[in-house]
Design a protein around this nucleic acid. Structure first.
Lengths: 163, 163
DNA sequence: CCGATAACCGACCTCCCTGGTAGGATATGG
DNA sequence: CCATATCCTACCAGGGAGGTCGGTTATCGG
């Protein structure tokens, strides 16, 4: 398990918002019910997304959440970063105020940190994978899966039967 | 923290073995002392590497461990896999007996697992980063760091002063 | 104005895994 | 025969993951 369930739940939440029209807010309860996830826990998850300004919110009756930007402009590294914190492959990797990533191991016994090269490459691999995927990709993927499930042959052109 | 310290310690151990000549075994105590790691815990770590046939061992006095293959032929995905188990970005990813990776989430409410696409890409990014790095790369990296530490100018050609 | 809805906030709690220790059994060289 | 060193199993404390609970604030419809 590399990422925690906060990432899973949060990404699902974002996809769910991406499926809705951005005009009107969607309540967290509707999302939690649709995905079968605990509402109280989702509140904590969505709080992180709001603090990162990935979603906006309106309080009170008929309130809810919506994407702060179109899904095409949201790269998934932002989302995962907001949910999980800094993406570091190993504990000794710290993120100072700049974009520089460095290993906090003191160079013990006169030689550098042997594993630094490896974890740096892994980190790059992860972040690149996340950057090249947008929320719109996932929304489209989820719609495609849905079509395959409900209509095996592409005859009917009704994607969401408004359950 | 994406990988546990087992990976860190195990990789360090492998690098240490890669620095030694493969003719004679190196005792675990020597490695633990050199890296400042607890011996008893390292026993558990090296056991995983041995079960994956990445290192071989000899018991008794003057026993120890050595690489089962030259460092150039050891890709780091094997090493990390042996130490951490299957490299899966999310809990729902299970690895069946083939090489196929799949998401165990039931397609709830008629639509597929929205996050599957994302985690699949992340997993690919990680594994590719690990595969393209060999143990020999890390050994060379550690030697280079050592040279920079001890001799700022490349005059003396003595790499290890046999402490 | 009132009550229902729903976002917001912080404290709490339980389980399990990580990281590490303890103590021994077995094998081997000198 | 003893020091060395691998091998094996059980045990244990701490912390974080995953989730619950109770309450507060804001906004709508009537």
């Amino acid at each position: 398990m590399i990422f925690s369930s906060k990432a899973e739940y949060g990404v699902r939440l974002m996809v769910e918002l991406g499926r809705q029209s951005p005009d009107q807010p969607t309540s967290l309860k509707a999302i939690a019910d649709a995905e079968g996830l605990p509402l109280a826990y989702m509140e904590q998850v969505v709080a992180r997304l709001r603090k990162a300004d990935l979603v906006r919110s309106a309080r009170g009756a008929h309130g809810g959440y919506w994407l702060s930007r179109p899904a095409e402009e949201i790269a998934m590294d932002e989302v995962v970063q907001a949910l999980e914190g800094a993406i570091v492959p190993m504990e000794c990797f710290t993120h100072d105020h700049t974009e520089r990533v460095l290993c906090s191991h003191e160079p013990d016994a006169g030689r550098g940190c042997a594993t630094k090269l490896l974890w740096t490459r892994v980190q790059g691999g992860i972040i690149r994978s996340l950057q090249m995927t947008t929320l719109a990709d996932l929304v489209e993927f989820s719609r495609r899966g849905e079509r395959e499930q409900t209509t095996p042959e592409p005859t009917a052109a009704v994607p969401t039967p408004a359950a």
